[in-house]
Computed example of a mutant assay.
Amino acid sequence: MEHDNAVLEKLMQLTGTGTPCALVTVVRAVSPTSAKPGEKAVVTADGRIHGWIGGGCAQPAVLRTVREAVEDGVSRLIRVTPRKNAEPEVEGITDFNMACHSGGTLDIFVDPMLPSPVVNVYGASPVARHLVALAARMDFRVQVLAPDTEAGDFPEAARHHDAFSTPEDWPAPRWAVVATQGRGDRPALEAALATQANPVAFVASERKCGKLADELRGRGLCDGHLSRIRAPAGIEISARTPAEIALSVTAQLVQWRRSADGSSALAPATPALDNAERPKEPETHSCCGGNA
């Protein structure tokens, strides 16, 4: 029990700091093995093992599997056994050869524990306020950037800043939503595009987005940066009220998170860019120079 408590405490520590890791559990053991069913460890992608899931015979297979699981977020069940003792292949179990002389078999479950995706929300409009609450409930780590507001205005937010600029000590966002709705649209878009967020959802019409894109292009932003904008934000649910619009945008964030191949997140961008040629890798844009 003490061992399990230490492992779970380490798991909480790592997830609390946003460190990707996996909870690894021995679910079946055929003697002789040094690990027994129920033994646990927290393993990071860089190979640090906190706990016990067997000796050097099992660890290479576990480390390889943890790296893969942390990368794609999919749980895995593996079997480490000598070839001479290999059991019939079972769907859903990945087999690894046990090179050690012990001759035992271990079935090990690898469950990735990934930090919640970080989303920047710009603005203090009714849509923004509903969006912060909904996205937080969907396990997004929401960072709010809204001038003339206080942290208490967004109780569900993980972080708050009363300006559009992102503080240096904040983690980089995976995505961003600009929900300023007429109050600081251009500076908020500029601030969002200056981060690593991709895509950047903009709560606005295509026409309005096109005009702002022209303004930003005139201020030195290249089409590579502007291609990250998605407008109008959200998926089509015939939303009309601020709460409904926030729901559609939250659904879009969930869609991006659950898209296994990223195709939803990298769908064709808003017509704000007219027919400008888009680069194959929109995350790197040397043409933007200091405006990045």
Rank of each mutant, 00 (worst) to 15 (best):
Q181L: 13
V144A: 06
M12H: 11
C222V: 15
T33D: 04
L226P: 07
V127K: 12
E87V: 07
T65K: 03
V118K: 03
D223P: 01
R76H: 02
L23T: 05
A194R: 15
P268C: 09
G18M: 07
E87Y: 00
L193Q: 11
D185N: 10
N291E: 14
A86E: 15
E236Q: 10
K10F: 00
D261P: 11
P88H: 04
R141Y: 00
P242I: 13
M98A: 11
P282C: 03
P112I: 09
G104D: 12
S31K: 10
S264Y: 13
E215P: 01
D4S: 12
C287E: 14
C21I: 11
E283L: 08
T241R: 03
T17V: 11
T241K: 02
P279F: 01
V90C: 05
L131D: 03
H161P: 07
E89C: 02
E2D: 14
A239R: 10
R240S: 12
A124D: 15
A176W: 01
V203T: 09
H161F: 08
V249E: 10
P232Q: 02
E168H: 08
T33H: 02
D169M: 01
E236M: 03
V121A: 07
Q181V: 12
T180M: 06
G54L: 11
D153E: 14
L216E: 05
V249P: 02
T81R: 06
L114G: 09
T44F: 00
A22N: 03
R240K: 15
K211M: 13
L23G: 05
P32C: 08
L221C: 06
S165I: 12
S264W: 08
A176F: 01
E89L: 08
V144W: 00
A265Q: 11
T105S: 06
V110W: 00
L131V: 13
A157K: 09
D274C: 09
T33C: 06
I237Y: 00
P167D: 02
A124L: 06
P88R: 12
G92E: 04
T17F: 00
R28P: 02
E236K: 06
R141Q: 14
A6Q: 13
F140R: 05
V24W: 01
G224A: 13
P173S: 05
V121L: 07
G56V: 09
V110N: 05
F96R: 05
A267R: 15
F154Y: 09
D107W: 02
A128S: 08
P32R: 05
V30R: 04
L8R: 08
R129I: 15
